[in-house]
């Protein structure tokens, strides 16, 4: 991409963006090395339950009410959060871009139909919809990812449609049409690359939202029962809030810090990629 180096420089000028990257890299490293440090998984009982952080050597973050190592849960939970966040965002981006591109490029009845569907999906309270979908289909990592994707794609669809509506009338697009380039080719090679920066910025919001929704679902006990995630740790720690609040607060802090880091990256990306909106 043209001026990619300049944009990277612009990004790196924002200390908050660099901080965000650093946090996200650390969380990713935790997710990737979870299996190395805790080959037996996060649910094995390692010590007495309800040990406070630092109370016993080797158990940095203490144990939960089942006697599992909280650090193991956090590291495996990072896996679940990032996996769900990234997968759901990826699915939403693909679906949303497709819908938005077709709507904005062809307009007419296709646009009408697709936008009414988008309206409807945005009308249904998204977290409620995710709860219902997981409730009806059954809880698994896949159903969680699908339910989050189903409620998230409209945002990207609207964004991409708006960009396509703007760009389809530019001269370079007309020129491509005149030389007989196919629609698919115009969409993919001419217009879409021009929307990328908006999509990149929006996808940071998507990832953050997906992580929040996943945490909410598994907090309610609607996550995959075989997967430990930050949300489920918060949910199970809640019952012993009085005896060991750290069991709840530690994973909660990880959710907040991770989402915060993604938001910081998103803001910095926005500044670097959309200089028009820098003052906002």
């Amino acid at each position: 991409m043209n001026g990619a180096v300049d944009k990277l420089k612009l990004f790196l000028r924002r200390p908050s963006g660099v901080l965000g990257i650093a946090i996200l890299v650390a969380v990713t490293a935790m997710a990737l090395t979870a299996g190395h440090f805790f080959p037996d998984g996060p649910t094995r009982m390692v010590a007495r339950p309800l040990l406070w952080p630092g109370q016993q050597a080797g158990l940095l973050l203490g144990t939960d009410r089942m006697g599992s190592d909280i650090l193991a849960g956090i590291m495996y939970g990072a896996r679940a959060s990032l996996l769900v966040g990234l997968s759901a965002a990826a699915v939403s981006i693909v679906v949303g871009t497709l819908v938005g591109a077709v709507s904005g490029y062809y307009r007419g009845w296709a646009d009408d139909v697709l936008m009414r569907i988008t309206d409807a999906v945005q009308t249904i309270p998204s977290f409620l919809a995710a709860v219902v979908i997981v409730g009806v289909v059954g809880a698994s990592l896949t159903s969680v990812i699908i339910s989050i994707s189903i409620v998230s794609w409209p945002m990207i669809a609207r964004l991409v449609r708006a960009e396509f509506l703007r760009l389809r009338n530019f001269d370079f697009v007309h020129a491509c049409r005149i030389i007989g380039m196919s629609d698919a080719r115009i969409i993919l090679t001419q217009i879409l690359p021009n929307c990328l920066s908006s999509i990149v910025v929006a996808s940071s919001v998507l990832v953050a939202t997906a992580i929040i929704v996943e945490a909410g679902l598994s907090f309610l006990g609607l996550g995959d029962p075989n997967v430990v995630s930050w949300g489920s740790m918060i949910g199970s720690g809640r019952t012993v809030l009085r005896a060991g609040w750290y069991i709840t607060v530690i994973p909660a802090a990880f959710v907040v810090v991770t989402v915060l880091s993604i938001n910081l990256i998103g803001d910095a990306l926005n500044d670097a990629l959309n200089p028009r909106l820098r003052e906002r």
Partner: peptide, 22 residues
């Protein structure tokens, strides 16, 4: 605002219960 924006509502709820009730 940055903190509020990054904190899911159920986490706020639990932290509030911890502080104001427990």
């Amino acid at each position: 605002v940055l903190l509020f924006y990054a904190t899911p509502v159920f986490i706020v709820a639990i932290v509030m219960i911890l502080c104001f009730s427990v």
